[in-house]
Write a protein that binds this DNA or RNA. Structure first.
Lengths: 341, 341
DNA sequence: GAATCATCCCAAAGCGCTTTGGATGCGTCA
DNA sequence: TGACGCATCCAAAGCGCTTTGGGATGATTC
């Protein structure tokens, strides 16, 4: 069932039917109702490709996920972010198109996307420090919103981000106030902007309290369980072992917990853990009482907000870059306690 | 830069240029090379919507993710599956379109998708027992491949699945051979087909060894860490506590491990754990020596295979349903040992 | 030399929609 | 009564591509 058939069936022109369906005023209420009813009854759906061709809009948003050549890991955060964004798109009648792109092909792919015209805008995932994609997309003229920010990029652009620096400063400060002096940081890869900012926050807190920043206590890797385990294991073997850990991910924190157990120590009593928590639906941080003391910020709602931001950016292109900084919430769980004296 | 401009620039017809670019034989080698070079130089990309309109193909695959009204959890497996599939699509020049659909709207959405014509085929995620989507899609006439199978559906359809029954039978048998007699099952939601099959496998192994199937030792829920923890905690408090657990997910297994520790017991010595392992990139099961004894099957390669299957199904629609059963590999890790006597 | 046949290329229609630029009919007003 | 405005509707062009149905050219055959 296409427009032509529908209009023939109604003995009206395609123009009138199209206008009625799209809410234009040049159609009488009577005719409009007749058309809407027929469309409903005959189960008419406009062909999105034809519509796109005619309007020049694609009615789709692209999510371009960088896949690094060294680090093939799929971001665990991704599913939840997409879920949040997808719900927003569904409400607006947009499709969501996913593309995985190797680092060395981003430029080609963005040009492709622009030329093929299959999306109206893009969400940029996983920004690194001084991310070249931002100036590239601005130059190409494709509307976009970055999930995260990019340090050292000085042109304006739209982004939505958690206050990573602030959160980690707060988490570290919290441990310091509990009396901890040797606090380790198990961070994500620090060329990633979020990880870079988290380290800044961690260091700020130490400096504010006149504590030394010790490279020995800082690690930066993909945030896996095994990374948490191995790092904590190593550090806990030392005589001057840390009494607390700040982790960039619940998964890593789980590894630390395992190491604490395996070292014959007790969490909260001997070793405290504070972790970032993206509130992933499959990694709930306990139920009534959280397992880990955490800096929580739902990546799912970030997805939804990013999508909304991009859609409004597309609707009003002139309105200039928008930004939104979300604050993480400090949740006190059972993984922290006063430093042993 | 569109076809018209390109052909004017070359002083050729659109027909010839189109044919040259799409590899049709009616163009001399000389002209073809000239066209290819110009296309390259001028950075020409065909508009995919126009192409789709003209050919009737969408050059896109839809992934429809069911979102249950009761269980809002985002499937943790999803990211890796998509990664595998996405790589296949990229190779074939297809786009991947994601749609999240509430359970009660599947029918409407599938009809929409068909009518709007924005995909050439669909991957069905998360099949339940007797899944209505299969007959629905067959009736609508949209090519599809199911990730998993659906018990009680007797019409033929294309699917790719892990041998869940076989894997869990094997895992349970392994524990029995280690001397375990009281073996608990922490399963996913059993209206999901994969979970249903896993229970069958578990029960088969018990029956084959003349062991009782005890409802007290079987739980079925969303596969979270907390589910594993709480269930194991409960069961380990009993006087006739289980000596082994079979889990449907590494995340749940982590919860069990925590419960074992918190109960003052030792993994492998007092309590053994066997778990399914989807080989998620952010949940590696240890490094050289796996942490958990596991039934491993990469969901990522399943994604890639599912995508390839669907693409070939679209290319040769008459060729009838295809199926592919993957075997999980039993990996011996440090979570299992002989039953304490 | 005419007929036949490849080879290479083109004009134009068509995919399903939107949108421009009228056309038509009717009531209103001086 | 004629001019005008308004409310409704329509024909046709156009979005960028593919594909059908030839047309022109030169080589080959008889």
């Amino acid at each position: 069932m296409n427009l032509k058939q529908l209009s023939e069936h109604l003995k009206l022109s395609q123009t009138t039917v199209s206008r009625a369906l799209n809410g234009y005023p040049e159609v009488s209420e009577h005719t409009r109702n007749r058309i809407l009813k027929a469309a409903q009854d005959l189960n008419y759906r406009p062909n999105i490709r034809a519509k796109g061709l005619a309007t020049g809009r694609a009615l789709a948003i692209g999510h371009v996920i960088p896949v690094s050549n060294q680090h093939e890991m799929v971001n665990p955060v991704f599913g939840d972010f997409i879920a949040g964004a997808g719900d927003s798109y569904a409400r607006a009648g947009y499709d969501m198109i996913l593309t995985r792109v190797p680092d060395d092909e981003v430029s080609r792919v963005y040009h492709d996307i622009k030329a093929r015209g299959n999306v109206d805008g893009i969400i940029v995932h996983g920004p690194v420090i001084n991310d070249p994609r931002i100036s590239l997309l601005s130059r190409i003229g494709l509307p976009f919103v970055v999930h995260g920010r990019s340090t050292d990029v000085n042109q304006p652009y739209s982004w939505i981000d958690v206050n990573n620096r602030g959160a980690f400063e707060r988490g570290t400060q919290f441990l310091i106030e509990l009396g901890h002096r040797r606090i380790a940081l198990l961070n994500g890869l620090e060329h990633m902007d979020f990880a870079f900012r988290r380290r800044k926050g961690y260091e700020n807190a130490l400096r504010n309290n006149a504590l030394p920043v010790e490279p020995d206590l800082m690690r930066s890797e993909e945030m896996t369980e095994i990374f948490g385990y191995r790092s904590a294991r190593d550090m806990l073997e030392r005589t001057d072992r840390p009494t607390a850990f700040v982790c960039s991910s619940i998964i890593t924190a789980m590894g630390v917990r395992r190491a604490v157990h395996d070292s014959g120590l007790t969490m909260a009593r001997d070793v405290s853990i504070v972790t970032h928590d993206d509130a992933l639906s499959y990694l709930e941080n306990g139920d009534d009482v959280p397992i880990f003391t955490a800096l929580r910020s739902s990546v799912r709602s970030a997805g939804s907000l990013a999508a909304d931001m991009l859609l409004s950016l597309i609707a009003a292109p002139q309105s200039g870059p928008r930004t939104r900084l979300l604050e993480a919430e400090l949740i006190i769980g059972r993984s922290t306690g006063p430093a042993a004296t």
